[in-house]
């Protein structure tokens, strides 16, 4: 299952870099991005496999939490943070859903 976290990193970190490349160095985006994904993905998987629930809503909450981290760490506006959070999660969830990754 851990391979899915690696796949999430491979999708989300390049998207983070695209949005934040003017705000920070690549290495910082890389390790902070890894921590952000790991902090949400592990809890999401634990909850989903233990209790089930509406996966779209859970993904939405994950996107909100990630947006909050982006805003706190890079001092971006709320709108920009939400765009980043939701883009990352929509792309990674969408590709996973379609079984393309």
């Amino acid at each position: 299952m851990w391979i899915y976290l690696v796949k999430t990193w491979l999708i989300e970190i390049p998207i983070l870099f695209l949005f934040l490349r003017h705000k920070d160095r690549f290495i910082n985006i890389l390790w902070l991005g890894m921590l952000i994904s790991a902090s949400t993905w592990t809890f999401l998987m634990y909850y989903w496999y233990s209790f089930g629930g509406n996966i779209f809503l859970l993904e939405g909450i994950v996107a909100l939490v990630e947006s909050l981290w982006v805003r706190s760490l890079w001092k971006t506006s709320w709108l920009y943070s939400l765009v980043i959070g939701f883009t990352c999660n929509a792309v990674s969830f969408g590709l996973g859903w379609l079984e393309w990754v």
């Binding site: 952000i36 809890f43 634990y46 496999y49």
Partner: peptide, 24 residues
């Protein structure tokens, strides 16, 4: 479910949050 998702995941998630808070 039991073997796929263990408490180890929560530990990893918790450590990531600690890392993020430290960075912040």
């Amino acid at each position: 479910k039991a073997s796929v998702v263990g408490e180890g995941w929560l530990v990893a998630g918790g450590l990531s949050i600690v890392g993020l808070l430290s960075a912040l």
